[in-house]
Amino acid sequence: MATWAESYNEYRDWLTGQGIIFSFTGYLSEDMLTTLGNALKKSMALSETNANVAKRVFSVFVEQVQNIIRYSSDRIAGTEPPTEMSGGMVTVGVDDDRFFVVCGNVVDAARAEPLRERLTHLARLDKDQLKAYYREKLREPPEEESQGASIGLIEIARRSSEPISFDIVWLDPEHNQAFFCIKAFI
């Protein structure tokens, strides 16, 4: 039987084998976005990543993490001082010379379907259509919550080299909550 350290080593090996630069699972907040974002920039600079590619990866990372922070259904909050954290996972890696960013978080059923529709719609648009759609969304008056997510998703789609992949895992037999997972290749 594997020792506990061997189990963690297998887990580490698995991550490394997937080309993972880093992976975080747990509760996220804006200050962690700052820290992880700086770590990502530094690691890309150290590996001499092309500056334009590094900017695109960083942009996808920021929009993905901010989506988790804003829209995850799994949240914890405290009052003194006022704090709120959002549960989710974010993983950045390299596969066959291309960076990817994977994000996942729990969403209520009511959120899952509109999100799926938006991503399906975005997947059908080419670069020029995405650019035009982004411009259109920028012009809209102060948005309601759901539309706020879509401009971030358009930004992710614009910086990606192929349509955003996404999938849903239902977490209960009644389909009340789902783990919504998004993968973008840059």
Partner: peptide, 12 residues
């Protein structure tokens, strides 16, 4: 040098 989508909205 970089801005996110909600900052883009403010710039617009």
């Amino acid at each position: 040098t970089y801005f996110n989508s909600s900052s883009a909205k403010a710039l617009m």
